[in-house]
């Protein structure tokens, strides 16, 4: 779905001693990318940016276009925000804190119901969303408050998936999970992505960026510092100045190249592809 930012400005706590720049003159347009990663240090404006896409924050100046809808600074002009939120699902950081119903099924059904989906379809959607996030039927009637942290997060994500958004925004979805939990979570998003949902993911994990994203935005001090493919980003000479991490596999690959091994950087996404390339590189030695 086409999303455009046109000279968007936003300031937090305006006109108080605690005033802070949120966004500064953001101009963006992303339509064709399937999996967009949003990276940058804490306070660089990543979360502020995604909250503008669904009108949770209104710009102080400038316009955001989402599909055919427009978000402007004036509250009264933004009548269609609910429609945008139906099309763009936003999963907040630590979403497990938004659960409130007495059963998992009811909680997941809450979203579609609010958007006016019929009772029958709501239940169907909720059930299929719960199964999709890797929980089985036995969870339907359980209380969300009795689940483990990882399960709660799955329920919360199911609550957004059940709305069937065309774009899914994820704000650090793996934060606080154990490695096993994060891996499963990423597999889930990958599947959703393959089924045609565009994903925008805020993250600090560069390994994830390299493996999954086809486009990456780097935020810094409320501005877009860089916008490119992950490979171009990590290979660019000024990436170091952003003081962000390198993906582990990428770091190893560049070291190997420095030492003279022939490796195709474009092929490297994760550990498996790295090993593959090392094998090829060594074969060409001999």
């Amino acid at each position: 779905m086409p999303i455009n930012f046109d000279h968007v400005f936003y300031t937090y706590s305006k006109k108080t001693p605690f005033e802070q720049v949120g966004l500064e003159d953001i101009n963006l347009s992303f339509n064709d990318y399937k999996f967009i990663a949003l990276v940058g240090h804490t306070g660089s404006g990543k979360s502020t940016l995604v909250q503008h896409i669904t009108g949770l924050l209104l710009p102080d100046k400038g316009v955001v276009h989402v599909d055919d809808y427009v978000i402007t600074p004036k509250k009264k002009e933004n009548k269609n925000i609910k429609k945008i939120r139906e099309n763009v699902g936003l999963v907040f950081q630590f979403p497990e804190y938004q659960l409130f119903e007495d059963t998992v099924l009811k909680d997941v059904a809450f979203g579609p119901k609010n958007f006016g989906v019929s009772e029958k379809e709501t239940i169907e959607r909720a059930k299929s969303a719960i199964l999709k996030v890797g929980l089985d039927e036995s969870y339907f009637e359980r209380s969300p408050f009795d689940l483990s942290g990882g399960e709660k997060r799955r329920v919360a994500i199911a609550g957004i998936i059940a709305i069937k958004p065309k774009v899914l925004i994820l704000d650090e979805p793996t934060a606080g999970l154990d490695p096993q939990g994060s891996k499963k979570m990423m597999q889930l998003f990958c599947e959703i992505n393959k089924n045609g949902t565009q994903i925008i993911m805020v993250t600090h994990d560069m390994d994830l960026v390299l493996e999954y994203a086809d486009h990456v935005l780097v935020m810094k001090d409320g501005k877009v510092a860089k916008e490119s493919s992950p490979l171009d980003l990590f290979s660019s000479s000024d990436y170091k100045e952003l003081s962000l991490d390198y993906p582990c596999v990428f770091a190893v690959a560049t070291e190997l190249i420095k030492k003279g091994m022939k490796i195709d950087l474009t092929k490297i996404k994760n550990l498996d592809t790295l090993v593959e390339e090392i094998k090829k590189g060594r074969d060409s030695y001999e």
Binding site: V252, E255, K259, M261, I278
Partner: peptide, 10 residues
């Protein structure tokens, strides 16, 4: 460590 690994591979 990684350094040794890189050296060994090359």
């Amino acid at each position: 460590n990684l350094e040794e690994l890189v050296n060994k591979l090359c």
